[in-house]
Design a protein around this nucleic acid. Sequence first.
DNA 1: CTAATCTCAGCAGAACTGAAATTG
DNA 2: CCAATTTCAGTTTTGCTGAGATTA
Lengths: 163, 163
Amino acid sequence: MTTEEDQGASALPACLRELPSRLLSQASAHATRLVTEELGAADAHKWHYATLAALEEFGPASQAALSGRTGIHRSDLVAVINELAARELVERTPDPVDRRRNVITLTAAGRRRLHKLEQLLATAQEELLSPLSETEREQLVGLLGRLVAHHAHGGPTMGADDR
Amino acid sequence: MTTEEDQGASALPACLRELPSRLLSQASAHATRLVTEELGAADAHKWHYATLAALEEFGPASQAALSGRTGIHRSDLVAVINELAARELVERTPDPVDRRRNVITLTAAGRRRLHKLEQLLATAQEELLSPLSETEREQLVGLLGRLVAHHAHGGPTMGADDR
DNA sequence: CTAATCTCAGCAGAACTGAAATTG
DNA sequence: CCAATTTCAGTTTTGCTGAGATTA
């Protein structure tokens, strides 16, 4: 009675397994899972990292600017800043120059936290790329970078949407 | 000052742009968009293709078997089969051997439809990979294939997490 | 009685929309 | 009056869970 319920990626038809778009999708899913697991173990998620990283690289910024720099939707950023501020990893203060804005500033604890998350992310990347040699990793990153760059700014159809 | 959403990928911090996991994520998002657009123009989506392709490659099957072969959740497959059956691209008949099951069969129209969708998908892959040479495409597919193969054998209860 | 199959109703989370409140 | 910013409430989409009905 037991049907071939044994599962596994190899159960998929060849035409599905070999489609580049599907390979990308699956590889991306694994990457997301690894990153989410690593960060989750430290009670963080990718948006925490993105926000802290943008603050370290560009300095204090309004939420609108952060939204543009991280790709996090203006609406969801509110919750992210709430969480970071609750742990005193960032400070949210009204902008004296334009009082519609908040200025978000990285604290010392936030910078330490960022470095911790960078470490966890590096672990996830290492796990993700573990089957590849150093040369192959560079190849992959190069090829992906070209794909993303090509489609990021006005592809064949139109564009300017990247998310 | 800025328009609401002017973010190109280049607005992102370097640490985010260069992360392999993020590159995968973005490349995958572009791939998904291209595929969805192509198939959407023909009023189809990826599950339709996956189902028709699995039926052509493995022949008639129960919904449970199809679910295993396509990665479509048993619950969502019901709706997919409904849609395909409504257009007479597949036939759903009770299995005379085990009456708990339905046997799903590809019709002649379904096979024609599959070939149409294959064509649209090929177009999407071509757009997706357009910045790469033939050799580079093979490299990319090879590298992605190894990543996916490596991570497909380890997760707990794995299997249906990909698409 | 237990297990597999199909089906449906609803949940969970992630990204987005719309609008109110405030300020420029 | 119009535009930008922050915030919140609610919608949409997507994959999944749980349970009921049927049959083995």
